[in-house]
Simulated scan of single mutants.
Amino acid sequence: MTAKPASRAEIGHARRARTRARLVGAATQVFARLGPDAPALEDVASAAGVARGTIYNHFETREALLTAVAIEAAEVIGLEILPLRAWRDPAARLAASLRCYIRRAGAEPEWGWAVVRIAFVAAPLGTRMTENLGQDLREGLESGRFQAASMQAAADIVLGAGILGMRAVLRGEAPPGHAEGVALAVLRGFAVPDAEEVARLPLGLPGLPWAS
């Protein structure tokens, strides 16, 4: 059976999606190198190799592009560590996620710097990350696995430790095993009794050298 030729609208939509992805990829590089405040949209257009006006067809403001980059960065790792969501213990899920973010930053500095430099400007970093963190903290607090003054206080501790842990690795300031150290510190802060064991559980994500 002969496949139906793509319509002009479908071709246009696919081309637009490719251009948008190209712009987000270029913006990731630019923001990682210069930070979220310095670059203008024209800088991103130049890095993507497109006309200056092209970028405005996809993003009206720099903030909109910044948010798109932040969401994309979070979605990428969210899919990579999806198997961890099957773990039943919220403490194990939380610690494993923290470790993966910090380890991936060390393995892929461009991605890591993009996340670190954008995090406090365009947070939260994507729907998937927000929902996963919320689920882990809610289950941990409601079950008594975590002790914290409030949901917001717990989220601030996790996000702050994770971002600063990534930055320490990227700047070459972190000792070996820093990802596990940060996870352990967070779990101890939440009064998890078996924090030492949980913070060092094998991640077991095949195909990801930084999550062995």
Results as ranks from 00 to 15, higher is better:
K4T: 14
K4Y: 00
P5D: 07
A6I: 09
S7C: 02
A9L: 07
A9V: 08
E10Q: 11
E10W: 00
G12I: 05
G12V: 04
R16Q: 12
R16I: 01
R18M: 09
V24G: 06
V24K: 04
A26N: 04
T28G: 10
R33Y: 03
P36D: 05
A38T: 15
A40I: 08
A40Y: 12
D43L: 04
V44D: 07
A45L: 06
S46I: 14
R52G: 13
R52W: 07
G53E: 12
T54C: 01
T54Q: 08
Y56Q: 11
F59Y: 12
A64P: 00
A64Q: 10
L65Q: 07
A73Q: 15
A74T: 01
V76E: 15
V76K: 11
G78E: 05
E80M: 10
I81T: 15
P83M: 13
L84M: 05
R85N: 13
A86R: 14
R88W: 01
P90C: 09
A91Q: 07
A92H: 10
A92I: 05
R93Y: 11
R93W: 09
A96V: 06
S97D: 11
R99N: 02
I102R: 02
R104C: 08
A107N: 03
A107Q: 03
P109R: 11
E110W: 00
W113A: 07
A114D: 10
V116S: 06
R117Y: 06
R117N: 14
R117S: 05
F120K: 14
A123W: 15
A123L: 14
L125N: 11
L125Y: 09
L125I: 13
T127N: 08
R128C: 04
R128L: 12
G134Y: 02
L137C: 07
E142Y: 08
E142T: 14
R145V: 15
A148T: 09
A153D: 13
A155H: 08
I157C: 05
I157S: 01
V158R: 00
G160T: 10
G160L: 09
G162R: 14
L164Y: 06
M166S: 08
A168V: 02
A168P: 02
L170T: 08
A174Q: 06
A174N: 02
G177W: 12
G177R: 13
G177E: 14
H178Q: 01
A179G: 05
L187W: 05
G189K: 10
F190Y: 05
D194P: 03
A195Q: 12
A195C: 09
E196M: 10
L201V: 03
P202T: 11
P202V: 12
L203H: 04
L205M: 00
L205S: 02
L205H: 00
P206S: 10
P206C: 08
L208G: 07
L208R: 13
L208P: 06
W210M: 03
